[in-house]
Design a binder for these strands. Sequence first.
DNA 1: TTCCTGACTTTAC
DNA 2: AGTAAAGCCAGGA
Length: 103
Amino acid sequence: MDSFFEQVYEVVRQIPEGRVASYGQIARLVGAPRKARFVGFAMHASPGMAGGVPCHRVVFKDGSLAPGFAFGGPDIQKEMLREEGVLFADEHHVDMEACAWEV
DNA sequence: TTCCTGACTTTAC
DNA sequence: AGTAAAGCCAGGA
């Protein structure tokens, strides 16, 4: 697959544990800062962790999660990230300052 | 081909 | 700080 989605998957796949990246950040890494929306769509269509795509490490630019489209609830995703060592600024906001994925 | 939709981002109130 | 509207690009019908 040479589609834009594959590029997103490869980038997301490189996100280490305890680290989170925003959609715009990933979009910029693939060379398309305007396609942030498609990054999210790619996550939705992604095979998940089974395919090496930890979509739970992908959050909004402000660190908030996706309510209603997460793994059965943003609380689950939050707990998963917390288990990996991701710090939280709020109950539904990740501390991007401390856990922002740096290339 | 055109029209519609979408895990986003930014700006404005 | 929180909510609302506009802009953006690619894919599906």
